[in-house]
Design a protein around this nucleic acid. Structure first.
Lengths: 250, 250
DNA sequence: TGTACATCAGTGAACGCGCGTTCACTGATGTAC
DNA sequence: TGTACATCAGTGAACGCGCGTTCACTGATGTAC
């Protein structure tokens, strides 16, 4: 979606420069997206304007239409990019922990999401805030949006395989309608996890984004001052409820 | 904020109609706000326009300035109204349960918030979604925004007085920075609640709004289909963690 | 009760602005023979 | 290697639109004597 032209290796000296044009095209596409991202940071998604983006890239406004056929297409590309960026940050942080440190991998994941959100507030708002009115997210956004939840579920599956499961203090019976939804999710993403554990996972995901949104949108502004500590405390509780072991010492 | 003119009893026949003008003014102020609310439902907060509101009320656009000195003032009034509306809905639902049914009062509160959000998605997005870019919420919004959290804390205080406290399975030590913030909150709002319980209360508030936002903004669109059941299940877990008794039978 | 003046609500025109999108065009880059 | 043609990127003008806000004005409602 982001770059629809074929990738070209920059320095292949054999062939006589076959795709100068397409290389330039890819570069400009990226420049436009970068400018759009900067725009987003200043005026938010509803104020994103093709003309302002064109101005920043140094083009005339109509030229942008060679790259994105409409404002909504550009917005979609930015949304996909944002999902990919936050997922990439989370995956990278998670990968940096030793495989055996399941608690540490979980913590690295949630911390990375929070840190990315604070570093890119408008991009975060674009994907996790109110939907842009009149804009319908195309299916292209589904896969990138699923990466973080899948990453979290992956950790839980490994934890289960390693014998880490929640203490069964929360053995409420699950209503049938909820069970049905969870069964569907299980068949899609996590055949080995139990329904109660899957329910906890979905709630953990909700709680992660809910907490970051409260911080980013200022809803606990005069209540919690050291949000990093509060967030860690909150997420440690979530991890414990999921049966994850404490993180290894740093 | 909403209505700055003095209330006038419509049918006081003694005095010779002292304030026809101010009564008309109050009515028109309300009409403008209603139109603004309708606008909001169609185009979202960023697209809210004074001119469109004026058109809907049947005024010329400049006439609106007799009632709201700028677009942002109108937006603020709408935000305050939205906070008041959702808080009013929650308080009313809570009040309808028998005082002794602490679990039922809690459940009525969270359900009322969810139902109000689903019935007024754009107003919900206005107060709990991404902040309107370039708009700074004035202090007028703080009190109405605090009503629901205070309602929830009130239930917890009564529960504590009645001997309902969480089973101490979550007796993690709280980091000092978090403790300090919670102590500040306690002195403001809930002198009798313990810090761990206050922490759980803040998280419950986060989880409530996080869950409703996930539903309203479509983040679990193809995962949870029967969201009402899922929401009840989730919130029952939160209530149990807070030590609240199960709701009385309906 | 009646008149003179002050207050206020609403009008209509105008300001300067930015927006998304279309279109005919120029000139440069690539391709086929 | 050289020429003829096709493709493509970017230009500049124009379209029709809606926006927030200001301002001098008219006429109706209220107030003081």
């Amino acid at each position: 979606m982001t770059t629809s032209s074929q990738p070209v290796r920059p320095g292949s000296p054999g062939k006589p420069a076959p795709a100068v044009r397409s290389r330039v095209r890819a570069e400009l596409t990226r420049e436009i997206l970068d400018a759009g991202r900067r725009q987003l940071g200043e005026v938010g998604s509803a104020g994103l304007s093709l003309r302002a983006v064109a101005r920043e890239v140094g083009m005339v406004s109509s030229a942008v239409y060679r790259y994105f056929p409409s404002r909504d297409t550009l917005l979609t590309a930015l949304i996909v990019d944002a999902y990919s960026a936050v997922a990439g940050a989370a995956e990278q942080a998670e990968r940096a922990r030793p495989r055996a440190d399941l608690g540490g991998r979980w913590r690295a994941t949630v911390r990375a999401v929070r840190e990315w959100a604070l570093a890119h507030p408008q991009e975060y708002a674009l994907i996790f805030g109110s939907p842009v009115p009149g804009y319908q997210a195309p299916p292209d956004t589904i896969d990138p949006a699923a990466r973080i939840p899948l990453l979290m579920i992956g950790i839980l599956r490994e934890a289960e395989a390693a014998g880490h499961t929640p203490s069964s203090d929360d053995d409420r019976t699950i209503p049938p309608a909820v069970l049905a939804d969870l069964a569907g999710l299980r068949s899609l993403a996590a055949p080995t996890l139990s329904e109660p554990q899957l329910a906890r996972a979905v709630m953990a995901w909700t709680q992660l984004i809910g907490s970051i949104s409260f911080e980013a949108f200022g809803h606990l502004n005069n209540v919690i001052h050291d949000y990093a500590s509060y967030f860690d405390y909150q997420m440690a509780g979530v991890a414990a409820a999921l049966g994850l072991p404490a993180p290894a010492a740093d």
